[in-house]
Amino acid sequence: MSTHTLEHAAHGNGDSAHAGVKHHHVTSPMLLLGVYGALVFLTVITVGVTLGPDLGNLNIWVALLIAVVKAALVGLYFMHLRWDNPFNGAILVMSLLFVAIFIGFTIMDTHHYQQNFSLPGPGRIP
């Protein structure tokens, strides 16, 4: 919630010159198709990576990285965030940040107390 956003919102109000909303960004077909192609390509890649060599713990991070890139493409181009009021993007980032806080704090010590439950603890392959 930077001051820039606040100013932007404040300016939006006084701005009564426009009769309609026709000046909003219109995405060109080539861009839409390009993004679509990239998304399909990344889907193929992400499936391909799991079929390929076992990267161990790295695997999930590769999968998540690809997912984040795909999500960014959808957000920026299909959802118009690239041309939109930055505050809308800030909302998206904020909610992702709070999900991260939630998961981060919660997962921090779950391993510690799992042994207290009646079922035996996490299984480990020797």
Binding site: N13, D15, H18, A19, V21, N85, N88, I91, M94, S95
Partner: peptide, 17 residues
């Protein structure tokens, strides 16, 4: 209309959040 459009869009984004 511009204000209305921006409000609606802001509301939608918050809902998506």
């Amino acid at each position: 209309p511009e204000q209305q459009y921006a409000s609606a869009k802001l509301g939608m984004w918050v809902f998506l959040g």
